[in-house]
Computed example of a mutant assay.
Amino acid sequence: MKESSKVCPEREREFGSFEEFQTALELYLEYYNHNRIKDKLGGLGPVQYRIQSGFTA
C-alpha cells in the first residue's frame, strides 16, 4: 500500500512506506530550517539568523 503526502506545496510524491516519508520529511525540515536562504533574514537561513541575533529556542 502506497502512502501519498505533500512535502512541498507544489509537488506531490508517493512514498513506499511511512519510514520513507519520515526520512524525506526530516531531510526537508533540515533544509527548510538550516539551508534555506532568506533575503528578509539578511541572506541567512532561519537557524543561522536566530543564532546571530541572539535568539534561542
Results as ranks from 00 to 15, higher is better:
residue 6 K to L: 02
residue 33 N to G: 01
residue 9 P to I: 06
residue 16 G to Y: 00
residue 45 G to P: 01
residue 54 G to D: 02
residue 56 T to E: 15
residue 56 T to Q: 14
residue 19 E to K: 14
residue 56 T to P: 07
residue 9 P to E: 11
residue 4 S to G: 12
residue 39 D to A: 13
residue 21 F to D: 06
residue 28 Y to T: 07
residue 39 D to S: 09
residue 14 E to K: 02
residue 43 G to R: 09
residue 15 F to D: 04
residue 1 M to Y: 14
residue 29 L to A: 10
residue 35 N to D: 09
residue 47 V to E: 04
residue 34 H to W: 01
residue 27 L to N: 15
residue 20 E to S: 10
residue 23 T to V: 14
residue 39 D to T: 08
residue 7 V to R: 01
residue 6 K to P: 00
residue 47 V to T: 11
residue 36 R to N: 05
residue 2 K to M: 06
residue 17 S to R: 08
residue 13 R to A: 03
residue 29 L to K: 09
residue 25 L to T: 07
residue 27 L to H: 11
residue 22 Q to K: 09
residue 44 L to P: 03
residue 6 K to C: 01
residue 8 C to H: 15
residue 3 E to Q: 12
residue 57 A to V: 07
residue 4 S to R: 10
residue 32 Y to E: 10
residue 7 V to K: 01
residue 40 K to L: 03
residue 29 L to C: 14
residue 51 I to C: 12
residue 50 R to P: 03
residue 3 E to F: 12
residue 49 Y to D: 07
residue 39 D to W: 04
residue 24 A to W: 05
residue 37 I to C: 05
residue 18 F to T: 10
residue 2 K to F: 08
residue 54 G to F: 05
residue 41 L to Y: 08
residue 51 I to N: 15
residue 10 E to M: 14
residue 42 G to D: 04
residue 7 V to L: 12
residue 55 F to C: 02
residue 56 T to Y: 13
residue 47 V to G: 02
residue 39 D to N: 09
residue 11 R to I: 14
residue 33 N to A: 06
residue 35 N to K: 11
residue 32 Y to M: 12
residue 21 F to S: 04
residue 54 G to I: 12
residue 24 A to V: 05
residue 54 G to L: 05
residue 43 G to S: 04
residue 47 V to K: 06
residue 6 K to S: 00
residue 22 Q to R: 09
residue 46 P to L: 07
residue 31 Y to I: 11
residue 32 Y to R: 15
residue 30 E to Q: 10
residue 14 E to A: 08
residue 6 K to V: 00
residue 2 K to R: 14
residue 44 L to Q: 11
residue 31 Y to H: 15
residue 35 N to T: 02
residue 32 Y to S: 13
residue 43 G to W: 08
residue 17 S to N: 14
residue 53 S to N: 04
residue 14 E to R: 04
residue 44 L to M: 11
residue 42 G to I: 00
residue 45 G to T: 02
residue 21 F to V: 05
residue 47 V to M: 04
residue 16 G to L: 04
residue 36 R to A: 09
residue 33 N to R: 03
residue 9 P to C: 12
residue 7 V to M: 03
residue 16 G to T: 02
residue 20 E to L: 04
residue 19 E to A: 12
residue 26 E to A: 13
residue 47 V to D: 06
residue 52 Q to R: 13
residue 31 Y to T: 08
residue 42 G to Y: 03
residue 54 G to W: 05
residue 13 R to F: 00
residue 19 E to R: 10
residue 25 L to E: 09
residue 26 E to T: 13
residue 50 R to L: 10
residue 32 Y to A: 15
residue 43 G to N: 10
residue 21 F to R: 12
residue 37 I to A: 07
residue 12 E to K: 04
residue 26 E to H: 12
residue 20 E to I: 01
residue 37 I to P: 02
residue 12 E to A: 09
residue 27 L to C: 08
residue 51 I to V: 15
residue 22 Q to W: 09
residue 39 D to K: 08
residue 32 Y to L: 14
residue 36 R to T: 03
residue 12 E to C: 05
residue 44 L to A: 01
residue 44 L to N: 03
residue 17 S to H: 10
residue 36 R to E: 07
residue 33 N to T: 05
residue 53 S to R: 06
residue 46 P to H: 09
residue 20 E to K: 05
